[in-house]
């Protein structure tokens, strides 16, 4: 099966899952997905749990509190929402683990090229932001003040803008020199 067909299958599965409202059925589907993920299952499950824990915990605790006070608490709802979100996020990570996302976007060559360049730039920008954070900490014997942190944030923004404009020009030249835009 091609990467694009995997993408289509993933999209259909995601839509179908949002029509399932039985916790048992979702638990069964989650077990099937985890079992089908092979050796990567533990790592994928850990990543999925880490990705959802903050939002889901907030919503779940909020629901338990509000619904409990109103006498409307339904444990089935907590099971339903947490299983559904975990299953959807797990499927997303499994899809990306199994299929090359750039190949999956090959039905739109422009989109695939933009995604390829963007992912490379994103990695470089993440490193820059990390360096800025470490630099601020190393320059601050005491916790930095609000104005120090604001100055640091604006310096990060300006630096990203400069790097972006330079990177766009470089990418265009590099792609042209490799014949990317030749008909």
């Amino acid at each position: 099966m091609t990467a694009t067909r995997w993408l289509l299958a993933y999209a259909l599965a995601v839509v179908a899952i949002t029509f399932v409202h039985q916790p048992l059925a979702l638990a069964g589907l989650l077990i099937l997905a985890v079992a089908g993920a092979g050796k990567a299952r533990r790592q994928l499950l850990k990543r999925a749990l880490a990705a959802i824990v903050t939002f889901n915990l907030t919503v779940s605790l909020g629901y338990a509190l509000v619904a409990g006070l109103r006498g409307e608490f339904a444990f089935g709802y907590l099971l339903l929402i947490n299983l559904r979100v975990l299953l959807l996020v797990f499927l997303g990570f499994w899809f990306v683990h199994r299929v090359n996302l750039i190949h999956a976007l090959s039905f739109a060559p422009g989109l695939a090229s933009a995604a390829t360049l963007a992912v490379g730039q994103i990695q470089s920008f993440r490193r820059v932001i990390g360096d800025f954070g470490l630099a601020l900490v190393s320059r601050s014997p005491e916790p930095p003040s609000l104005s120090d942190r604001m100055r640091s944030a604006s310096a990060q923004g300006r630096d990203l803008l400069d790097k972006s404009v330079a990177a766009a020009q470089e990418s265009a030249l590099a792609m042209r020199s490799r014949g990317c835009f030749d008909d």
Binding site: R126, S164, R176
Partner: peptide, 23 residues
């Protein structure tokens, strides 16, 4: 998409992502 728009869109995408990382 052409030689101007693809790199520009890609780098703007990275810029948007990068600005989203600025605390």
């Amino acid at each position: 998409f052409d030689e101007e728009t693809i790199p520009r869109l890609a780098v703007l995408t990275a810029l948007a992502y990068g600005l989203g990382l600025v605390m």
